[in-house]
């Protein structure tokens, strides 16, 4: 299969240089070519796995359990100001 690697990379929000695209494109096609063997398996009427043990996803009580740790949680951020995350301007 011929895959438009730049299109997929944009979906994943990764910029690829031309050299990277030239290397990753054929590798991606190889990997997808390999997994296409799944098509040969008869899966008619077979349910897709959601959780390996069919365990139900529990809901927790709608209650506050965390204290305010804003400073600690923002400590690893690339750029903050007055407790806010700073990113490039998104509106004119």
């Amino acid at each position: 299969m011929n895959i438009d690697v730049q299109k997929v990379a944009m979906l994943a929000r990764i910029r690829l240089t031309d050299e990277e695209a030239a290397e990753l494109g054929p590798q991606l096609s190889n990997i997808i070519g390999y997994v296409e063997q799944l098509a040969s398996v008869d899966t008619d009427g077979v349910a897709a796995t959601a959780h390996p043990h069919d365990a139900a996803m529990p809901l927790r009580a709608d209650a506050v359990t965390n204290s305010n740790r804003r400073d600690a949680l923002q400590q690893p951020a690339p750029k903050i100001e007055s407790g806010l995350y700073v990113v490039p301007k998104v509106v004119e």
């Binding site: 997808i32 997994v35 799944l38 098509a39 398996v41 899966t43 077979v46 349910a47 897709a48 796995t49 959601a50 390996p52």
Partner: peptide, 14 residues
Amino acid sequence: AYYLKAQQVRTLIQ
């Protein structure tokens, strides 16, 4: 064709 199919094959492996 890919993700759903793989999760069905996964059920068969289980």
